[in-house]
Design a protein around this nucleic acid. Structure first.
Length: 295
DNA sequence: TGCCAGGCCCTCTTTAGGGCCTT
């Protein structure tokens, strides 16, 4: 039992949420018992060896009272984008595609603050989702969300950026570009994102690219002769247009990320856009930092 | 519901105005 958990305990917990507790339900001395496992030492010291063959269930409890940073790395299913493949070809992934959504205190990237970061790698798999609340010092209008947001476990932006850099690097394919996709990203998410990096002395890596799915939708869905009218390219409109079912979640920004992943998938198939085409349509961070330096 | 900022895009443009879209 210890051997199994020594290899998997933290990995298992991190896949769920860094502040998650693991409950093990088993049979011991002919009685049903529950063990709450917070650390590996709980496994080695508190768990009776006799329970080993009688584990009947594992439960995962998300603890909101934890003092640990609340950055979560979660599993997601892969999103298959359109891939032009001829017989005998091997599939070449030209870039890592990360769908991004930010929560903020308002619309002005110069004066408002990021409060929530949600990113999903369309490749899917273990740790393919990055989610965190940030800037616990700011106050949200929504009282219930503000209670979660101001907890001590919520990292400051300068604490979250190094974790974000490490995570993106872990998703990168052999130094190939990373494309961040966001809806109305040109005017909203990307200026906030780039400005936050500069504010804390971080440079956006040169091979990070940015693609606005609103811009893309207006171009490709119009070119494709769809009946989507001008003024109907909100994320909700696209979700409805493609008959996508959106799952609810307490992680508000991740709901939109999941929706945009599905929308992006549909758009690439409707317009036969490969990942390589997305790379060609993406911009560098200088597009969003030029305005800042000229102020 | 409308406001907030601002880049994009469309229309009636040519010089500009206004709606879209994001929290």
């Amino acid at each position: 039992m210890s051997f199994i958990f020594s290899r998997n305990f933290y990995h298992l917990r991190n896949c769920l949420l860094i502040s998650a507790n693991i409950r093990l339900l088993g049979i011991h001395s002919n009685r049903c018992i529950v063990f709450l496992l917070r650390t590996f030492s709980d496994v080695t010291h508190r768990l009776p060896q006799t329970i080993t063959p009688h584990i009947i269930n594992l439960q995962f409890n998300i603890s909101l009272a934890s003092k640990e940073p609340k950055i979560s790395y979660q599993y997601s299913d892969p999103i298959q984008l359109y891939q032009e493949q001829k017989e005998g070809d091997t599939i070449d992934q030209p870039a890592t595609i990360l769908v991004l959504d930010l929560g903020t205190t308002g619309l002005n990237s110069k004066t408002d603050k990021i409060t929530e970061i949600a990113i999903r790698d369309v490749q899917g798999g273990m740790n393919s989702k990055f989610y965190t609340l940030v800037n616990r010092e700011v106050t949200l209008k929504n009282h219930k969300r503000n209670e979660l947001h101001t907890e001590s476990g919520v990292p400051r932006m300068e604490e979250a950026i190094p974790e974000l850099l490490k995570w993106v690097h872990s998703r990168q394919i052999n130094g190939k570009p990373v494309i961040f996709v966001a809806h109305n990203g040109h005017c909203f998410d990307f200026p906030f994102f780039v400005r936050a990096f500069h504010e804390y002395g971080y440079q956006i890596p040169e091979n990070w690219l940015f693609l606005d799915s609103l811009h893309l939708a207006r171009q490709v869905l119009h070119d494709n002769g769809t009946k989507l009218k001008r003024g109907n390219h909100k994320l909700k409109d696209l979700v409805k247009f493609f008959n996508i079912v959106v799952e609810a979640s307490a992680q508000k920004a991740m709901v939109d990320v999941n929706a945009l992943c599905a929308v992006l998938q549909q758009m690439t198939f409707v317009s036969k856009l490969t990942s390589g085409d997305l790379v060609e349509r993406a911009y560098t961070a200088s597009r969003y930092s030029t305005r800042r330096s000229s102020e």
